[in-house]
Amino acid sequence: MIDAKSSLLRLQAIRKTVGPFSIAADFEIRSGERIALVGPSGCGKTSLLRIISGLDAAEGGEIRLNSRDITHLPAERRRIGYVFQESALFPSLNLIENVTFALRIQKVPRAEREALALPWLQKTGLADRSHASVQNLSGGERQRVAFIRAILSKPELLLLDEPFSALDSALRSKMREQLVELHQLWPVPLLFVTHDEMDVASVATDRLKYDSQTQMRDATSSAVRKFYR
């Protein structure tokens, strides 16, 4: 059984070459923390999330989640919730089928799945549209569905890739509040990518430090983008 209140993500000497530069990461995130990953465009923020989630492989280093070494585990076995920038809802499934997708994979009976999802949908004002097609949802609704879908998989870590980027400013501030509220209900470590300082100020408990360094190796220089705390 996962204890959402005592989770810990630890990245040690993670590195990966992404195009013309390398990214490196060394940090820890604990339960209850919401850490912002801020940096210029193309510095490797999304790549880092993809490495942690297992969608891409690291070239070196170690990722531990609750003392489990997950460095070489495939994405589907890491127990990490990932909210994509474009929400990535499944258009062939309706709203409730989307949010309970992970429970269906775990073979949880339908009635139980829906019972588990209902409180989350009520909290986010989506309960009355639970059987609607996700293709008719607004940008804000899509992001909420994606977030609940990730939480209902009972992840040990939450990763959010620019979760508010497609929303207008009024909706953004509402969504920020809602995200903090929802995270308090499932307070696993949370790491999110953003470009907006307002997101950092209203959501993050801390931010990762970011450095761009130049390393010499075999008489050639290469840029290293490093994320650390």
Binding site: G54, L55, E76, R79, Y82, A88, I105, S153
Partner: peptide, 21 residues
């Protein structure tokens, strides 16, 4: 969309489940 496949992976779907759903 590649993100849909990846989202299903992060939600624990295996090869057949990804194909089916």
């Amino acid at each position: 969309p590649r993100a849909q496949i990846e989202a299903s992976e992060t939600l624990g779907a295996n090869f057949w489940q990804r194909f089916r759903w």
